[in-house]
Structure formats: structure tokens, C-alpha cells
Computed example of a mutant assay.
Amino acid sequence: MLPVLAITVLCIATWASALNDPLSDLPRFGTPLNNLTVSVGREAVFTCIVENLGPYKVAWLRVDTQTILTIATHVITKNHRIAVTHSGHRRWCLHIRDTKETDRGWYMCQVNTDPMSSNTGFLEVVVPPDILDDSTSTDMEVQEGSNVTLRCAATGTPKPKVTWRREIGGTIAQSNSHEVGEGSVLKLTRVTRSDMGPYLCIASNGVPPAVSKRIVLNVYFQPMIWIENQLVGAYEGQTLVLECHSEAYPTAITYWTRPSNETITNENYKVETIPKGYEINMRLTIKSVQPQDFGSYRCVAKNSLGEMDGKIKLYRIDRSPTMRRPSNRRDSKKMWMMEHSHERNATGMRDEPMSKGAENDDEQIDFQSAADSSHRHCRLFSSLGIAAIAVILADCLST
């Protein structure tokens, strides 16, 4: 009540002073008082321009609470966050430091003329979004085929907009082909393993920064196994890789059994599991296939919801002739000579006698044997007297 009385006395004194000088001009405001928008915690500064202030005084008031904040250069309110500055009695500034949401409202720059003149402006205090953990969903684990509701509660000024996004990308079931769902509640119907993973609840209201919360959805299902090749052929001594693909959550325990139904631990085998999310690639390497390795192999995946296995049958095949190595030194030389002769004929080159250094006893025996064999065949055809092969006999006799 005392501040209001002080303002009244001040107004009367100033009015009396103005009467003594009837030629003086009354004060007028240079520009309207601007509205302000500041983020919570920042400083808000209202600026009031008064032309020809003269003997009059400028006061700042909070309109909605009818509180006098300052008179001239004096701070009246007990709020330590309020301050006043001026420049040449023309520019008067009201400072509100460390703004709070409760500072939102109308403020008045008042000059104690008769009648009183004033200028008003509105202070908007905006608040960045914040997600309320108590009212927001946490990580969830559900059975495949269940319905799931995810909630995200956010506050802020203006009211935040809530959107949902999958952290790894992809479709959100509720929003069909769209990657983003909107609203504080996200409902997923009959979830499958493809819906598993982290979801991001994002709150934004135009006041930086936007905030998000990560909610992980895990979907339980029993193991499944599929095999690309269930029948595999191999020859003895071959290195072979058998593969099974498994899906399960919780993560399955996996192992292989050999044809004797024993769990594989032999050093001749190498067992690998390559996980990727809820998928596991099971790989069995047989370092050198032995006779006892032929038969049926099982890959097994087991978790708390069930067990599944797949079978691969390994059967024996003969080594391809093209894969056999030369059995001795003579075979190697014959193969080289055949290839060498073929290359020379293809380029039109004439055969030349081999140097003595390149010949050896084995090769001479091979050529002599071939010549003797040719003459024997010719004598055989001659003794038979077959007219149909007369031309061939003539060639043989000429040799």
C-alpha cells in the first residue's frame, strides 16, 4: 500500500511543477513497447523511449499482479532479478534476469502525467521440451503376436509435438509405409520379430534443443532354422563348409552333431557362429573329409521357448579326372609334350628335333613303343584283308 501512496504523491508533485511552467511540453513515447519472447533462464529487456520527459518520472509495473517494480532509478520490488537502467532520461530499460515461467505476462512503462500515460508489452517465456520419465515407457519384452503400446509424455512451452522413429530406419507398423509416427502414444498391433529394435520418441516445440528417449522393444519367439543346401557331395580329403541359418530370441544355444549323433568336438572340425541381431549363421568346416565323415549332420538351435534342428546329408563323390595330379615323372613329361606340340601347331611352326640334352631313356622307349605298336596294327589289318580300310593300310605300309 505504501508504494501506491508514494506514486500518488509523486504524481501530485510533478503536476504542480508542470503548472508553474505552462509552456513546457508533456512527455510522449517515441515507439511502442515491443513484445518479447525469451527462453527460460535467459534475460528479458524491455526498452521504453520517452521524448521530452522533463520533470516527470518513469515507472515500471507488472500489470497482471499490479506490482510496482521500479520508479525512476530505484527498484521497488524485492525481486532481486529485477533491475532498471537509463540513458539520458530518454531511454529506460527494465531488466528481468534468469527468467522463469512465472514471469510470463504484461509489463507497463508509465509516465506520471495527468492523465497518466503508459505503454505496455507482453513477455512470453518459452521452455524447451522435456520428456517425463515417470510417464514414458521403458524397454519392453513381449511375445511375438502381442499388441504393444508405447507412451511418451513431454512438457514444454509451447506444447511439444511428439514423433516416433525407428533408430535403424524402416517402417513403423502403425503408420504403414511411413517411417514416422505422430502422437504421444504409439500402438503396434500383432508385433513380429521385424518390429524388434530400438524406437526413438522425439519431442520438439521450436525451442532448441529437441529431446528424445530411446525405448527398446524385444520380441520373444522360438528358434527357426533354414538350410540352403540339404544334400552336399564331397570327395575324400576335401575341405568342406556346411551352413545353417537360425533366428531366435532370446538368443539360442547352437551346436552341431555328426553322423554318429555325437556333438562335434573333433579337431578335424571347426565350428563358428556369426550373430547379427536375432539371426545366427552357423558354420561347420570339415578340414579334410574322411570316410567316417559321410552321413547326416544336424545343426541345432535351442532357447527357453523351444528347440529346432536342421539336417544336411553329406555323400561321397569321386574326384574329377581333371583334378587328379600326374602319377609319375613320365606322365608329367607326356602332358608337357602334348601341350607344347599343340601350341606349335596352332602358330604354324614346324617341329624341330629335340636336343640331346632334352632326351632321355624313358622318352626313347616311349617313342619306340609307339612306333612298334603302329606297325603291329598295320600288320593286323593286312592279315584280315579288309577292303574297306585299304587306304589306311596304304598309309601304314608307307610308314
Results as ranks from 00 to 15, higher is better:
residue 78 K to L: 07
residue 27 P to Q: 02
residue 243 E to K: 14
residue 392 I to R: 07
residue 192 T to Q: 07
residue 106 W to V: 07
residue 295 G to L: 12
residue 237 G to H: 05
residue 215 I to V: 14
residue 81 R to V: 08
residue 251 T to G: 06
residue 144 E to R: 10
residue 288 S to P: 00
residue 348 G to E: 05
residue 49 I to E: 03
residue 188 L to P: 08
residue 214 R to V: 11
residue 57 K to Y: 00
residue 311 K to S: 12
residue 336 W to P: 08
residue 339 E to H: 13
residue 123 L to D: 06
residue 146 S to W: 10
residue 114 D to E: 07
residue 367 F to A: 14
residue 380 L to Y: 05
residue 286 I to Q: 09
residue 25 D to Q: 10
residue 272 E to W: 05
residue 268 N to K: 04
residue 280 I to E: 10
residue 382 S to V: 08
residue 85 T to V: 08
residue 324 R to D: 09
residue 285 T to P: 02
residue 143 Q to V: 09
residue 256 W to S: 01
residue 237 G to Q: 13
residue 60 W to G: 02
residue 42 R to E: 14
residue 366 D to Q: 15
residue 314 L to I: 11
residue 264 I to L: 10
residue 228 E to F: 14
residue 242 L to I: 14
residue 287 K to M: 12
residue 85 T to F: 04
residue 89 H to C: 05
residue 20 N to E: 06
residue 334 K to Q: 12
residue 159 K to G: 08
residue 6 A to E: 01
residue 248 A to R: 13
residue 182 E to V: 07
residue 140 M to E: 15
residue 325 R to N: 06
residue 128 P to D: 05
residue 95 H to C: 03
residue 356 K to G: 15
residue 389 I to Y: 01
residue 154 A to D: 07
residue 377 H to T: 03
residue 321 P to D: 11
residue 290 Q to D: 05
residue 355 S to I: 06
residue 339 E to P: 12
residue 2 L to W: 02
residue 397 L to N: 02
residue 126 V to P: 02
residue 30 G to E: 02
residue 44 A to S: 10
residue 275 P to Y: 01
residue 205 N to F: 04
residue 5 L to A: 11
residue 163 T to V: 15
residue 138 T to A: 11
residue 261 N to S: 13
residue 267 E to D: 11
residue 70 T to D: 03
residue 133 D to Q: 11
residue 297 Y to E: 06
residue 41 G to Y: 00
residue 89 H to V: 06
residue 19 L to E: 01
residue 144 E to I: 15
residue 215 I to F: 08
residue 337 M to N: 07
residue 68 I to Y: 02
residue 388 A to R: 06
residue 266 N to W: 02
residue 77 T to A: 07
residue 210 A to I: 04
residue 342 H to I: 07
residue 9 V to Q: 03
residue 235 Y to V: 14
residue 159 K to T: 05
residue 278 Y to F: 09
residue 213 K to S: 03
residue 304 S to G: 03
residue 240 L to F: 00
residue 139 D to R: 06
residue 218 N to Q: 09
residue 326 P to T: 15
residue 189 T to Q: 09
residue 117 S to F: 09
residue 198 P to T: 13
residue 378 C to I: 10
residue 139 D to S: 13
residue 54 G to N: 09
residue 281 N to P: 01
residue 8 T to A: 10
residue 144 E to N: 13
residue 239 T to P: 00
residue 53 L to K: 12
residue 308 M to N: 12
residue 249 Y to C: 12
residue 222 Q to V: 02
residue 66 Q to H: 07
residue 184 S to H: 11
residue 361 D to T: 14
